[in-house]
């Protein structure tokens, strides 16, 4: 899928560059939920995600005057987020702790969530909390780079082309990482089918 030529955030970016802090606030409000999902699924820790998000937007605010619009603001801020998160994960790699407390309990009451799980036999048979735990475990066993690709493609729903721009790698590399990560996840998640939790 091609990136739309007109950046929908162009006006807000221009206003921010001319000193309108309120315009940047609008960008923060717009992108916080999406970037939260990206960073959280790469870190699996709410506090780390919060600190990283603050740093990401602070860095974006400092750097936005140098943003020339060669890519969309969406791609630009996602690049900042992914790179900062990957750098953070490298530093954190030796003190990693899986945080399962941050999973929102209200997920089990979400209508869309229930509909999506109704047709999935392994999921239907599994306890949802256990499912979340297994998913997080499986994700965290991936390398940081593979987890980033899986997060952007499967969870965020980004196309390969967009991911390749954000990571500054070829689309072939994105597809290759995705294929490898899927194989790994298959191995980890097969335990659901073997030993479903009732």
């Amino acid at each position: 899928m091609d990136q739309p030529r007109v950046d929908p955030d162009q006006e807000l970016v221009k206003r921010t560059q001319s000193g309108d802090a309120g315009a940047f606030d609008e960008l923060v409000i717009k992108y916080t939920p999406r970037l939260y999902g990206l960073v959280y699924n790469m870190t699996s820790n709410h506090e780390d995600t919060n600190d990283l998000l603050q740093d990401i937007f602070a860095k974006a605010y400092r750097a936005i005057r140098g943003f020339r619009g060669k890519s969309s603001f969406y791609t630009w801020i996602h690049s900042i987020a992914v790179n900062m998160t990957l750098n953070f994960l490298k530093k954190r790699s030796r003190r990693f702790q899986l945080s399962l407390d941050d999973v929102d309990a209200s997920i089990q009451n979400d209508k869309e969530f229930l509909e999506s799980t109704a047709t999935s036999s392994p999921v239907r048979e599994a306890d949802l909390s256990e499912l979340q735990r297994r998913l997080n475990e499986a994700m965290m066993k991936l390398s940081d780079e593979h987890r980033a690709v899986v997060t952007m493609f499967h969870i965020q729903g980004m196309p390969h082309a967009e991911i390749s721009k954000i990571l500054r790698v070829s689309e072939g590399t994105v597809r290759s990482r995705l294929f490898y990560a899927n194989r790994q996840l298959q191995n980890y998640l097969d335990e659901f089918r073997k030993n479903p939790v009732s």
């Binding site: 999902g37 997920i107 998913l135 969870i155 965020q156």
Partner: peptide, 13 residues
């Protein structure tokens, strides 16, 4: 796998 991973969209702060 894709369907399972999409469930993580509903994880909220």
């Amino acid at each position: 796998i894709a369907r399972l991973l999409r469930l993580k969209r509903y994880e909220q702060p």
